[in-house]
């Protein structure tokens, strides 16, 4: 199958006051069309940097990023992004916030159709009736749902999620996981999800990439067997427990807290 996202031999360093800080070093990630990859790794290893490269907000020092067969040279409107901070504009209503990308990206939709699309997405994530509220009137989970709608409103091919559920409590987070599956079914996209939560990674993604500590390279790739929508029960099966154990071990290796091979002191 064609890979929609390809990251080939990417290296990147930031220039800081104390000289160059290598952040990514030989990163290889490929995501097939319709695939959903979760990226986990130690804090500060370069995950957000990776999302900025895929979004075309930055160019890598070495290596290439390809999206649907074209080399990324700058931002493109076929990408949608959501962050840990929902960054909703306080002076706009929820509906106006969701419609923001349509003011930037060329669209064939009439004003009325744009509104309908935004309303449809808000209903999809369970925010029906909140269209005319201000962001300050919504809870954290609701704001994150609205932010998700905004990232999808222009029908992006690629959805980049940088720890979107990181600041939410456990119950809200699990609610949003299920919403995510519903959204992916209704609005197919190819996704990259950055997360700190290993359960989240195997619940949502069909492939989990573990990055090494900084500078990050691809350390381990885990294929999640049952893709597509699943319910929370899945997290309590022996298979899930095994995957989580493997990932946990890989993270420890990445953090330098565990030896690279089991049994070696």
């Amino acid at each position: 199958m064609n890979n929609l996202i390809e990251i080939k031999g990417v290296r990147h360093a930031y220039t800081t006051a104390d000289g160059p800080l290598p952040v990514l070093d030989g990163l290889e990630i490929a995501v097939p069309e319709g695939g959903f990859v979760a990226v986990v790794g130690p804090s500060g290893c370069g995950k957000s940097t990776l999302t900025r490269l895929v979004a075309g907000l930055m160019m890598p020092d070495v290596g290439e990023v390809w999206l649907h067969g074209e080399r990324v040279k700058g931002p493109r409107s076929t990408v949608g992004m959501a962050f840990q901070n929902p960054v909703l504009l306080e002076w706009r209503t929820i509906l106006q916030n969701v419609m923001l990308p349509l003011e930037i990206v060329p669209t064939k939709l009439s004003r009325k159709e744009q509104k309908e699309r935004a309303r449809y997405l808000l209903a999809l994530v369970g925010l029906e009736g909140f269209e005319d509220k201000r962001p300050s009137e919504l809870s954290g989970g609701m704001r994150q749902r609205a932010s998700l709608c905004r990232s999808l409103v222009h029908k992006p091919e690629v959805l980049i999620l940088d720890e979107p559920f990181g600041a939410l409590d456990a119950f809200t987070r699990e609610d949003l996981w299920q919403t995510m599956h519903k959204v992916k079914e209704a609005e197919p996209f190819t996704g990259v999800l950055i997360t700190h939560d290993l359960r989240e990674s195997i619940f949502l993604a069909d492939q989990v990439v573990v990055l090494s500590g900084r500078p990050a390279r691809t350390q381990y790739v885990l294929d999640v067997p049952n893709t597509g929508p699943r319910d929370l029960e899945h997290l309590y099966t022996p298979e899930a427990a095994e995957m989580l154990a493997v990932l946990r071990h890989q993270i420890e290796v990445a953090q330098g807290r565990a030896p690279v091979e089991e049994g070696v002191a």
């Binding site: 979004a55 907000l57 931002p75 409107s77 992004m81 962050f83 960054v87 930037i104």
Partner: peptide
Amino acid sequence: LEPEYRDILRALGA
């Protein structure tokens, strides 16, 4: 201004 605010628009080519 938090960089994310800039990024949500910049990522779309604004």
